[in-house]
C-alpha cells in the first residue's frame, strides 16, 4: 500500500471535520453573497481573524497541555495601552515603533509568565488563576489609562497594523508565519511532544522524566507572547486603545477557534492548522452575518451553535 493511502486511512472524520466545514462554509458563502469572494472582503476577513487567531495559536498550546487561559482578552488591552504609552514616551520615528513592538512582546511574555508562575508554583487551577488575572489586567488597564482612550502620537506606528505586502495585510502575514512556526514547534520539536504528553497524562509524563511544571509554565508564556504580538498589531491598526473595550471577549473567540479546530478541551491532542481553520471559520461566519444583514445581536448565537457542533463532533470521534 502506498504511504499516502495508509495515511488517508488513518485520518478519521474528527481530524478532517474543521477542514470540511471550512470548505462547505466557503462554498455556501460564495453562493449566498456576491461580495464574499471579492479580494477586498477576503483580505478584510483575514485581517479581522489574525488578531484573535494569533492569540488562539498560543491558546492551542495551553489547551493541549490541559490548561486554559481566560486572561488573554484583558491582557490585550493592558499590553496595548502600555505599548502606546511607551511609543508616546519615546517619541517619533521607527525607533519608537521598534521599542513599542519589542516591549509589547516582552510585556506579553511577562504577563504570561505571571500566569504560568501562579499556576505551576502556586498550584492554582488555570481556570481560576487566569480568571483572577483577567480581572486584574483589565482593572490595571482602566486605572493607568484613567479609563480614557489612549492614542498614539507616532505617525509611523499605524503602518504595522495597516500596511500591506503583496496586497496582503501585515497582520495576516504574521498570523500565517507564526502558525507555521508554532506548527513546527508542536509537531516536530521535543517541547511540542512534551506538551501533548503532559496534557494526555501528566503522571505518565512525570514518570517519563519530563519536567511537567516547566512545560506547563512555558505554554502560558507562549500564550502571553502571542497576546503581546496580537496586542501591538491591534493597537497599531486602530492607532489607539480603548481600555474598556479592547480585547473584550477575545478569550472566548480564541478558545472557540481552538475547539472548532478539533483540539480536545480535555487536553492531549490538537493541531495548529486546526486552530487556523477554526479562527477563519469564525471570521467567515461573522462576515457572512454582516453581509447578509443579519442582526448583530444574533451573531453570538450563531457562534455558540458552531462551537457546540464542533464539540459534539469531537465527542463522537472520541467514542
Amino acid at each position: 500500500m502506498s504511504p499516502i493511502i495508509t495515511r488517508l486511512k488513518r485520518l478519521d472524520i474528527a481530524t478532517y471535520a474543521p477542514f470540511i466545514a471550512l470548505l462547505i462554509l466557503i462554498v455556501f458563502s460564495s453562493i449566498a453573497s456576491e461580495h464574499f469572494l471579492m479580494p477586498r472582503n477576503i483580505t478584510n476577513v483575514l485581517r479581522q481573524v489574525s488578531y484573535t487567531g494569533i492569540i488562539a495559536l498560543g491558546m492551542t498550546f495551553v489547551i493541549i497541555a490541559g490548561g486554559i487561559d481566560l486572561s488573554v482578552g484583558s491582557m490585550v488591552a493592558l499590553v496595548g495601552v502600555l505599548s502606546i504609552m511607551i511609543i508616546n514616551g519615546v517619541g517619533d520615528g521607527w525607533w519608537a515603533v521598534a521599542m513599542a513592538v519589542s516591549s509589547a512582546i516582552a510585556l506579553g511574555g511577562v504577563f504570561g509568565a505571571i500566569n504560568g508562575l501562579i499556576i505551576t508554583r502556586g498550584r492554582v487551577a488555570s481556570f481560576i488563576a487566569t480568571l483572577a488575572t483577567m480581572s486584574i489586567f483589565r482593572s490595571m488597564t482602566l486605572y493607568i489609562s484613567d479609563a480614557g482612550e489612549v492614542v498614539s502620537e507616532n505617525n509611523k506606528f499605524a503602518e504595522i497594523g495597516g500596511g500591506y505586502l503583496w496586497a496582503i495585510p501585515y497582520p495576516v502575514w504574521i498570523f500565517l508565519l507564526l502558525a507555521i512556526a508554532y506548527h513546527i514547534v508542536l509537531k516536530h520539536s521535543a517541547f511540542g511532544r512534551h506538551v501533548c504528553a503532559v496534557g494526555s497524562n501528566s503522571k505518565v509524563a512525570s514518570y517519563s522524566a519530563i519536567k511537567v511544571r516547566w512545560v506547563y509554565f512555558l505554554t502560558f508564556l507562549i500564550a502571553g507572547l502571542s497576546v503581546g504580538i496580537a496586542a501591538v498589531l491591534l493597537a497599531s491598526r486602530l492607532n489607539s486603545v480603548s481600555p474598556g473595550d479592547a480585547g473584550l471577549f477575545y478569550e472566548l473567540d480564541a478558545i472557540a477557534a481552538v475547539v472548532i479546530g478539533g483540539t480536545a478541551l480535555s487536553g492531549g491532542k490538537g493541531t495548529i492548522w486546526g486552530t487556523v481553520i477554526g479562527a477563519i471559520i469564525l471570521g467567515i461566519i461573522n462576515n457572512m452575518l454582516n453581509l447578509m444583514g443579519i442582526s448583530p445581536y444574533l451573531q453570538g448565537m450563531v457562534k455558540g451553535m458552531v462551537i457546540l457542533t464542533a464539540v459534539l463532533v469531537q465527542f463522537k470521534g472520541d467514542r
Binding site: 516536530h188 511532544r193 494526555s200
Partner: peptide
C-alpha cells in the same frame, strides 16, 4: 496510569524518555 500515554502511538511512547537522542533541531 504512570507508564504509557494511551492516545499516543507506538513510536511516540517508545521515544518519550529518550526523545533527546532523536532531535537534531527537530524530531
Amino acid at each position: 496510569g504512570k507508564g504509557l500515554i494511551m492516545n499516543f502511538d507506538i513510536p511516540k511512547n517508545i521515544t518519550l524518555i529518550s526523545l533527546a537522542s532523536y532531535v537534531k533541531g527537530l524530531i
